[in-house]
Design a protein around this nucleic acid. Sequence first.
DNA 1: GAACGTTAGTCTCAAAAAGAGACTAGCGCT
DNA 2: AGCGCTAGTCTCTTTTTGAGACTAACGTTC
Lengths: 136, 136
Amino acid sequence: MVLKAARKPALGGQECDMSGWDGGNCPVRDVIDRIAGKWSTLLLEALSRRPYRFGELRRLVPDISQRMLTQTLRDLQRDGYVEREVFPTKPPSVEYRMTDLGRSLFEPLSKVLQWAEKNHPSVKAARAKYDESELA
Amino acid sequence: MVLKAARKPALGGQECDMSGWDGGNCPVRDVIDRIAGKWSTLLLEALSRRPYRFGELRRLVPDISQRMLTQTLRDLQRDGYVEREVFPTKPPSVEYRMTDLGRSLFEPLSKVLQWAEKNHPSVKAARAKYDESELA
DNA sequence: GAACGTTAGTCTCAAAAAGAGACTAGCGCT
DNA sequence: AGCGCTAGTCTCTTTTTGAGACTAACGTTC
């Protein structure tokens, strides 16, 4: 795991150069920062199941604003994770579907979601413990 | 994968109830929204390698503000991913180390980071293609 | 012995991002 | 003729983030 565009570590595998990080020059950050948003994961999860239209996604995730839905979909499209297809009906309908690149990303990503589901109780417990010790 | 606190799906495994999502009642979102930040992943990656002190982390990630470093570390600590230990020297030094829960989260998470590193070229290519078709 | 650097933050103010909701256009339905 | 449907965009307000000064007590330097 190399986090900066960097020379190979002396001894292989798990080495990771973190010295001299700058946001603009780190490939991992370049990719991660885009999918790390609150909504990206959610939309990728949805689109991993089947294609959806704009309005369907909006109804699916009731607390996203139209503005952020548009913007997040554009970002995902730009990075090659989803495709946008316009059907020239009147009014036009637009379908978003996951690409192969998107699927290949979602494979490891879904493991994190599964972790989250499984370990939610532990996290809630940790929060409770922290909050209790804080107000003391 | 159940994304809402929901009844078991009729046929097991890959089923996922996304109807009637509300942010506050979805365990996966509850967990993901906290680690989805721009800085969380970065700090988890660092702390997965070894414990670090506050100032070390600040130097390691030069473009994080002290404010966000404090806040992100507190969030990670609250959710049980990192521990904070104060050494009563003068001036006091504070060490942050990853917990077992944090390590168990970082296992799938690191797969996503590896994906990002590996597929950075594809993503950059997709961006270039998108940007080109946009300005046309 | 006075000035400076060190520590891990907090505080304030400015800038950027996100949320809420009105508004668009063209067609079908009643 | 008026209403609703579509996928957005535009504007305004609120929230989040960033930049940087400030703290306090000690060690080192001049």
